[in-house]
Nucleic acid binder design. Structure first.
Lengths: 221, 221
DNA sequence: TCCGCAAACTTGTGATCACAGGATAGGAAA
DNA sequence: TTTCCTATCCTGTGATCACAAGTTTGCGGA
């Protein structure tokens, strides 16, 4: 949501020395990439112990994640990663479609060959994660594919919203991985790249929409 | 962003007795409805003094608002309401269009007569605010019109995102009011209501899009 | 063996404090 | 009068603590 730096490639210890920010970034990445199971509880003192900070920065990091919908705080303060209802999953999927179709459409006129090359190499990394059965790695590289494309849209607020949706879906996304079993590799991603090369906007919108929607559909039981 | 209760009609002292939440809600309303000028600085101790709490809850409220993009924290921690660039305003307007068109479209099949009545009475309130030259009241009732409609969409995550955009535009929205000078009253709102009555989805989408876009266009210099 | 209650513990909340860094004002020198 | 430097103030950060509320554990009675 904010303009803070991306927690993606994350050099081991970022230059930003703020304690709560470090905790926030670490937790955000863990949640977004499905490293934390849905329903898992987090305690202030536990976080503090794990990241060697006091309760204050831990609380601020948690509260920020709650504000972004990444964590839900149950009655009386306990905070845990949320278990999404089917309606919520469908709504978030629709939101992804809405935002990401627009982002890709805006990125299209600015997509140079260098970008397409980069997307293709990310695709290789995704295939590797699939073959290694690395769920967290798969989710991370998959989102990196999307983020790389959308960065070209020059629409930071829109991208931030898309990332917030990813964050909310993170814990659930992990469950998705268990069901796709090697079928999914960069099928839709190849369509996206083809549409980018061809400058085919309707095709791009369609490809992004299905890539975003189709996976989540498996989750709705 | 979160599922917290609406700060709108706000009974004077809410049942939720949490200090930081009270401060958060109060500040959120003030920002969203344009009660704070763009660029205005907020201090932790100042907030604490104003709402009679210590620095801790004040800091949490501010930090949450920063996370939602309602406030920008400049280099080295100072927090102030942001002055939006033209590109940012255009992007946020596009985001409003994207989200609110979808929300209105989802609300359409569920719009009963009671809803339309309520929207019309809100429209009267808007006209009254315009005649009273009450900028904050105008913004508040205008957003209430939109929120009342979108609540019918049964899409809480999407509505929360729209509200986040409103929040980011809040301080800027105030500046808009100075330029519309009694011209604007519920012109587009009447189109929205007409489309709702007729069950005309394309017309509704168009009316919402222009209502959302046209005002903001005045801000881009 | 099972149920219920109480004690011990764990948890989030908010206040206070020490500290470091940045902003500001005021005086001295040119 | 203007400019620069320094001392003071103000601000955000993070640690620690007291407290209240919720959770768990374990013991006693039926």
């Amino acid at each position: 949501m904010s303009i803070s730096a991306r927690p993606t490639a994350s050099s081991p210890s970022d230059t930003t020395a703020s304690a709560h920010d470090r905790v926030y970034r670490a937790l955000r990445a863990r949640i977004m990439y499905g490293d934390i199971a849905p329903g898992e509880a987090l305690t202030l003192r536990g976080i503090g112990r794990e990241y060697e900070v006091s309760m204050t920065p831990a609380r601020e990091a948690l509260r920020r994640l709650v504000a972004e919908g990444a964590l839900s705080l149950s009655s009386s303060g306990r905070v845990a990663t949320p278990e999404l209802s089917n309606e919520r999953i469908e709504e978030l999927a629709a939101l992804r479609a809405l935002l990401e179709v627009e982002l890709s459409s805006r990125a299209l006129p600015r997509a140079h060959m260098a970008l397409i090359d980069r997307l293709q190499s990310i695709n290789l990394a995704i295939a590797e994660m699939v073959s290694k059965r690395d769920a967290v790695g798969y989710i991370r590289t998959n989102l990196e594919f999307h983020r790389t494309l959308y960065l070209r849209a020059q629409a930071p607020a829109m991208l931030a919203m898309a990332e917030t949706v990813w964050l909310q879906l993170g814990p659930t996304m992990r469950a998705l991985y268990g069901r796709l079993r090697r079928t999914d590799p960069p099928q839709n991603h190849r369509l996206i790249i083809a549409a980018l090369k061809a400058g085919d906007e309707p095709g791009l919108r369609l490809a992004v929409r299905s890539d975003v929607t189709q996976g989540l559909r498996l989750l709705v039981v």
